[in-house]
Amino acid sequence: MTYLLLFLEFAKISLVCVGGGYASMPLIQASVVDSYHWLTLPEFIDIFTISQMTPGPIGINAATFAGMKIAGLAGAISATMGFVTPSIFLCIALAKIIFKYGELGAIQGILNGLRPAVMALIAAACIGFVLLAVWDVEDLPQDFFSSANPIGAIILIGALIAARKKISAIKLLIACGFAGLILGNLF
């Protein structure tokens, strides 16, 4: 029964979670820690840390990890499938509507307004990413220059130059991983 409950809980979280992986964290916490007591708060904080460190979308990582801790591999699969099942129905339904009526002026108008909005949100996400990469914080630090992490700054600038020169994204990420390992051990 735990599996079904996990599936349903995460399906519920997915339906009310809008606006990126970080938005899902408090919801997952409210469910698995506060209402069901499947995990303790320190265990949940571990999940948050690991989800941020490991590759993969953060929400999926958290769902998988929580499911794994609660009920093993089958629990991980139940939680993750619960987390994405509403999405597949919602997205396909929306996509169908867009492609069927996409030529209509109204839908074109909405999409024309949404594209610049997405560009702004991507740019806004960049700010948070840069802060995390160079300063290891999520808000603007007081001591702007002294608290900067030079290794992070060097890798970021180097990677940006490489990205502007259209180097393959995956190769770039692997190279950055090596750079982090080498520079981190040297200094």
Binding site: M53, L132, A133, A175, G177, G180
Partner: peptide, 15 residues
């Protein structure tokens, strides 16, 4: 350290 490096790379890609 490896993940920190990759995080910087991901930031560069997004930028």
């Amino acid at each position: 350290l490896v993940l920190k490096g990759m995080q910087c790379g991901a930031t560069a890609l997004l930028l």
